[in-house]
Amino acid sequence: MKISFKLNGNDKTIDIDGSTPLLWAIRDKIGLKGTKFGCGIAQCGACTIHIDGVAVRSCIYPTEMIEGKSVTTIEGISGEENLHPVQQAWVEEVVPQCGYCQSGFIMATAALLKENPNPTDDEIDESIRNICRCGTYTRMRKAIHRAAEINLKQAEDIENDQRK
C-alpha cells in the first residue's frame, strides 16, 4: 500500500506492506540507517524515533499508522550547520563508546526535553529507559543536564535578540 507522511520535514510516499514495522521501512526501504535494530519488542530503545514529536519505538510500530503524520529520525534533528543541542551535549561530555544505542538515547532525550525542559535526576531515571551495554549512563546523565542548559541558553539568546 502507498503511505504518505512527512519524514524529517519533507513529504514522502512509500509503497510497502502496511504491517511492516516502521523500523524496517526507515532502514531498508528509505535507507536511513541511523535508527537501529536491537530487540524487535520495544525493550531496548535502539530504534527510538519521533512521531509528531513524541518518542516512539519504531520496531513494533506498523508503518500504515504513520499516514499523514510527521516522522523524525536521528538524521533529521540537526541542522545543516549545527548539531542538535542534545547532540552537542553528547559531544561535550564525550558520551558514546561503541555508539550503537546512541541514536535511540539521543532521540529519547530530545523528546524528553521538549516535554520537560529541565528534568531532575529522578525524572531522567523515570523516562530514559533504553539500554546501553557499554555503560555510558553516567555520562549520559551529565549530557542530558547539559543539553537542558544549552536549550535554556539558546532560548535566552533568542529572547535577548528580540529585545534588542
Binding site: G34, K36, Q87, V91, V94, G99
Partner: peptide
Amino acid sequence: IQRVDINEKVTGAPIFGIDAEIEDMLY
C-alpha cells in the same frame, strides 16, 4: 583528546556491520 569517531556516533552514521549493503542483496 576528543574521540575521533564522535561525529559519526552522535549523528547516526551508517558505520556498523548491520548497516552494510551490497547491491542486489537479499535478507
